[in-house]
């Protein structure tokens, strides 16, 4: 009983790690830093995290978790409710269904695909926001944000991979 119970708790805790880690990354980059202009071009941590876990362990970050994560981001950022939820769910679904392409793939391949995914994801976000406000938003900021997300990807990938290995062990 005791062994089974703690085993189950351990399993649940492991299952929650990808979601909680994605949430933590989101909150860290949402915290008031006071760095001028940073918030506008801050990297999209949730796209990075969802991309990583959708390749590595989609079973630990199911679509409904991704959806909730997107809604939380929408609320905390103050944008229209549902936009980031759509983007993240699409990223998670697309990547996890094509997962076999990433098995044993080198980092360069994963990173190049990420460039496509982040461009498409932020592009969809920009488009829906523009439609919602019926005004074309600044495209340059979008490009800088995409570039920042790409720059941060290798570091966050390394960090998440470390946690990922801990989950296995």
């Amino acid at each position: 009983m005791g062994y089974e119970f703690w085993g189950r708790i351990n399993q649940i805790a492991r299952g929650l790690i990808p979601f909680l880690l994605s949430l933590l990354l989101l909150l860290v980059f949402l915290t008031s830093t006071g760095i001028p202009g940073f918030v506008k071009v801050a990297p999209s941590m949730t796209i990075i995290s969802v991309y990583y876990w959708s390749i590595s362990r989609p079973e630990l970050l199911p679509l409904y978790s991704v959806f909730i994560l997107g809604l939380i981001e929408d609320v905390l950022v103050g944008g229209p409710l549902g936009i980031q939820a759509i983007v993240l769910v699409l990223v998670a679904y697309t990547v996890s269904t094509q997962r076999h392409f990433f098995t044993f793939a080198p980092f360069g391949y994963i990173f190049s695909t990420f460039i496509l995914v982040v461009t498409a994801g932020l592009g969809v976000n920009w488009l829906v926001n523009s439609l919602f406000a019926w005004e074309l938003w600044d495209f340059m900021t979008l490009l800088v944000k995409a570039a920042m997300t790409m720059i941060f990807y290798p570091v966050v990938h390394w960090l998440l991979a470390k946690v990922d290995r801990t989950i296995v062990s």
Partner: peptide, 18 residues
């Protein structure tokens, strides 16, 4: 139908809020 459900829910939220 998870994907469809979630996209519809998010789209619905966007429209309701609008």
């Amino acid at each position: 139908f998870a994907l469809t459900l979630m996209i519809l829910t998010a789209g619905g939220l966007l429209i309701i809020e609008r």
